[in-house]
């Protein structure tokens, strides 16, 4: 898979200390369920994202175990109480060795 993986992450700007903010993340991925037959009648092998994680300065703050029933281009939104500025690291793992990592700043004023 030489093509670049596209991921979108939304973190609110100008967050005040103590605010609970919503973090949203989407990644481009087919999420092939493994339940569909192809034109030859044989089953298309499963190719999904199986795990999504978010860490703030190395501390896990959110994770998801993902099954084929999550729609293509998986989207996850979750809340986070902003106590201090830090670095958010988001990782996706999946079938066929799929692995993607994004880093973004959480700026708390």
């Amino acid at each position: 898979m030489a093509t670049a993986v596209r991921a979108l992450i939304h973190v609110p700007r100008q967050v005040r200390r103590g605010d609970v903010v919503e973090i949203r993340a989407t990644i481009a991925h087919v999420m092939e369920t493994g339940h569909r037959p192809d034109s030859e009648g044989s089953r298309v092998p499963r190719d999904i994202v199986t795990r999504f994680e978010c860490q703030l300065d190395g501390t896990p703050v959110f994770a998801a175990d993902v099954y084929p029933a999550v729609a293509a281009n998986p989207y996850f939104a979750f809340a986070l109480r902003a106590e201090r500025s830090g670095t958010l690291v988001l990782t996706w793992e999946g079938d066929r060795g799929f692995r993607h990592r994004e880093t973004t700043a959480l700026e708390v004023t």
């Binding site: 896990p60 703050v61 959110f62 998801a64 996850f76 979750f78 809340a79 986070l80 109480r81």
Partner: peptide, 14 residues
């Protein structure tokens, strides 16, 4: 979904 107290609110979407 796996949550922690640092989430502040137990709200998720997909």
């Amino acid at each position: 979904f796996h949550l922690v107290p640092a989430n502040g609110r137990a709200e998720v979407a997909t």
